[in-house]
């Protein structure tokens, strides 16, 4: 009897994490709000009036009421399931996100590795979308997305390794996000540690690539390959892709906050949630909005070279320093 009760409690807690906080409603609401703020700030930086902050919500409401079109030559099962794959991956990711001082995330050893794999799912979904839509632009987008993913995964993996080895000690790696947070509460945040600053800079470069904003919006380049993989989507599927990218923004920004500056403000839960959202917002401003409103677009081979030359080398510097116990 006691066992059944505790199982129900576990399932209830998991559902709460998945549907309301920190996944589900919270991540969706925050993500959509961030997208709106991002568009508004970009417009103000270009001295335009800009759309209202709730514009992404309006877009999603409109799209879900539109007619859905499926190309005759598309692979229908794949074409229709591609948006779901990305969305489910990101929803799980957001549910596992530990928010410092509020919720702990997964109590197991390797959740940072789980994160590393789940973070690639939206890119995989875009690849499936592009290749199954039978449009030449979609196929081009598919190949570009794959190249870009390989490029930004290398620095990300080295950043994760550097953080894990810093926390675990020189010959032992610690992949649990909870332990990473508690280590930083004891020894100071990684952003104040000179050994980890190159890794943090590399993470700043990783963010625009994974969020698909200029100068790294190569797979969905509107003016070259007319939004690539998203070209053939319309109506509710397109809305699902937008929701996925909104949650993904929160997930990658929150992940950066957790591994580099998770310090809390006292024990109040509401204050900590707001503080977390504020830190995510600042990270987005620096790595995404400011750069986006001032740059054009890289060619794919330039982006590939850039990721291997600068962020990968920065992350490697941190990794080597951590390896030699600085």
């Amino acid at each position: 009897m006691q066992d059944t009760y505790s199982y129900i409690m576990l399932i209830g807690a998991a559902l709460f994490n998945l549907l309301i906080f920190p996944g589900g409603l919270f991540a969706l609401g925050l993500g959509v709000l961030f997208k709106g703020l991002d568009r508004k700030i970009e417009a103000r930086l270009q001295r335009r009036v800009g759309p209202p902050v709730i514009q992404p919500i309006i877009d999603i409401i409109k799209l879900s009421g539109k007619e859905a079109m499926i190309p005759e030559t598309a692979q229908r099962p794949l074409f229709q399931s591609a948006p779901l794959i990305g969305f489910i991956g990101m929803a799980v990711c957001a549910a596992l996100l530990p928010i410092p001082g509020v919720s702990g995330g997964l109590p197991y050893m390797g959740d940072m590795l789980v994160y590393f794999y789940l973070l690639q799912l939206p890119a995989v979904a875009l690849m499936i979308a592009g290749s199954s839509s039978s449009s030449p632009f979609g196929t081009l987008g598919f190949s570009r997305e794959m190249t870009l993913m390989f490029a930004y995964e290398i620095p990300l993996l080295m950043i994760i390794l550097a953080v894990a080895m810093k926390v675990g000690g020189s010959n032992f790696a610690e992949f649990s996000l909870m332990n990473i947070i508690s280590y930083q509460e004891e020894h100071g945040q990684f952003i104040t540690n000179w050994v980890m600053i190159p890794a943090f800079l590399a993470y700043l470069f990783f963010l625009p690539g994974t969020m698909g904003v200029p100068p790294f919006d190569i797979p969905e380049a509107e003016t070259e390959i007319v939004e690539g993989p998203l070209l053939e989507y319309s109506g509710a599927s397109l809305a699902l892709f937008q929701l996925t990218s909104a949650i993904k923004n929160i997930v990658v920004l929150g992940f950066g906050v957790v591994i580099f500056f998770p310090m809390t403000l006292g024990g109040n839960i509401a204050v900590n949630i707001l503080w977390f959202a504020f830190k995510c917002f600042v990270l987005m401003l620096i790595s995404c909005t400011f750069i986006k409103s001032a740059t054009g677009r890289f060619r794919i081979e330039q982006a590939f070279g850039f990721y291997l030359k600068i962020p990968a080398v920065l992350a490697l510097i941190s990794l080597v320093l951590v390896w030699f116990n600085f």
Binding site: R39, A43, R48, V49, G50, P51, P52, Q55, I58, D59, M69, E222, T223, V226, E227, L230, L231, E232, Y233, S234, L238
Partner: peptide
């Protein structure tokens, strides 16, 4: 025109 919520989209499907 973006303040009316407009956006130029590349694909006719959008």
């Amino acid at each position: 025109v973006e303040r009316l919520g407009c956006k130029y989209c590349g694909s006719p499907r959008h």
